[in-house]
Write a protein that binds this DNA or RNA. Structure first.
Lengths: 239, 239
DNA sequence: CGATGCGTTTGCGCTAGCACAATGTTTTGC
DNA sequence: GCAAAACATTGTGCTAGCGCAAACGCATCG
């Protein structure tokens, strides 16, 4: 289901962008120019912003919320490639010479995004100092993360992979609560299994065990990590 | 073992670069300038060009041969992330805002490489039209490949992953021989296992079985795929 | 040419994690 | 407030693939 975004209007203030790396070197005028060309969209949770394989005609900035990059195999298995959090550009296929999106972007929460037509990418990177550089830096970070995923999948057991996935989630999208660090958005066992290449059943068993030993707590669709250090231990346990 | 490259001198001719995407839009003068700044190195097979985590002070162009990008886990497991073939840039950490190499580069054959100091990267991309764009296009391709690897590892069985790995190898680095397509360089079961996240034993069993059924032939450290189509079937078999 | 080392094959037992299935719990929509 | 849907838990077999081990073939080098 491609989303039909509700285009509720939002005050576009230059302070929205001024602190984000790709824009941080730009002056007020440049930022206002960039904002003037942007379209704002609001999406509900669980809808797609764009679909894998479609023509990459726009690129996006996530202003608020979380988005997942998801790929679907020929026989219907979903794989969650990564999570995108507020302040990050996504759908930047053009920056890497692609004509189509490499994955489907699905909102994990209600989100607010800006978007621009792909056609002005070249103009942006030529005109605005640091825009391209900082963007490619972000790409570099994602590549590093993907690399880590590959190594994890190749060498670790399911228990360790789930531990790694939880650690990544609380690092990137966690907030402190009274009894630990909670993941910002709702997440199911199924989601976690799609991040780690296993089944929701195995994830459920694992989390149950960890809850018994006090490493995590979980309410419906919500996970709090109480003992991150123990999770690190689990994630690096010798075979 | 970091390699001490033998710096045999090679005639640097502009035709070496003129056909490679990052340089294809440049005129003879520009290419001669670029070559003038390059250092040539020859490496034996099985030595490292640079090491993961080291300062990324040079970037490289593979003129001849094959190089593997390899990562090593804390407990000594190797994972082969990808293969680089002649004509490709590698070690371009700087392009992605990294200060260190994300993986170790190990030669799979005798190789010939050009290299430049990282410090002139910005100058290159600013001065030479198409250089950055084409490079990022290559990066995009690699990202796509990594993404596929992740999906494969998450959803496919060992047999299918090995089939995928072989298919990738013959596509990227294969040449036609009388009885099929042979992989250009020597490759062990151990190498294949490090590409697919399994053990050399399982790879050996698999290849033995495939050899019996006529899909492949293998001599010592050499593999020929006789029936690529059957390999495709194996790689996509329904669970 | 014999010896040493690296790569390969194959057998055997075991277990991590999957498939299948049934039941329980929380949320949502009317 | 009740029904339906979505999410979660837990039990029971089963098997793909691993770990361990032994033996064999091929290359390299003195």
């Amino acid at each position: 289901m491609q989303a039909s975004p509700s285009s509720r209007h939002v005050r576009l203030d230059e302070s929205l962008l001024a602190d984000l790396p790709p824009f941080s070197k730009l002056d007020g005028l440049a930022i206002r120019n960039i904002l003037a060309k942007a379209t704002t969209h609001r999406f509900d949770a669980g809808v797609s912003v764009f679909e894998e394989g479609n023509a990459a005609d726009r690129f996006y900035l996530l202003l608020d919320g979380y988005v997942r990059a998801v790929r679907i195999t020929p026989d219907g298995d979903q794989v969650i490639a990564l999570h995108i959090s507020a302040g990050q550009l996504f759908g930047i296929a053009k920056a890497l010479g692609r004509e189509t999106y490499p994955a489907t972007a699905i909102t994990a929460t209600e989100t607010l995004v800006l978007s621009w037509p792909t056609s002005i990418w070249d103009d942006f990177s030529a005109r605005y100092d640091g825009f391209a550089t900082e963007t490619y830096k972000a790409v570099g970070k994602r590549i590093g993360e993907m690399n880590n995923r590959i190594v994890e999948m190749a060498t670790l057991h399911v228990e360790q992979r789930i531990a790694c996935a939880l650690l990544r989630l609380i690092n990137q999208t966690g907030h402190k609560v009274s009894d630990g660090i909670e993941i910002d958005f709702q997440i199911t066992r199924q989601d976690l299994s799609e991040m780690t290449g296993t089944t929701l059943h195995t994830v459920s068993r694992m989390l149950s065990a960890w809850e018994k030993s006090g490493v995590i707590k979980s309410r419906h669709k919500k996970i709090t990590v109480c003992d991150p250090h123990q999770l690190v231990v689990l994630s690096t346990a010798r075979v």
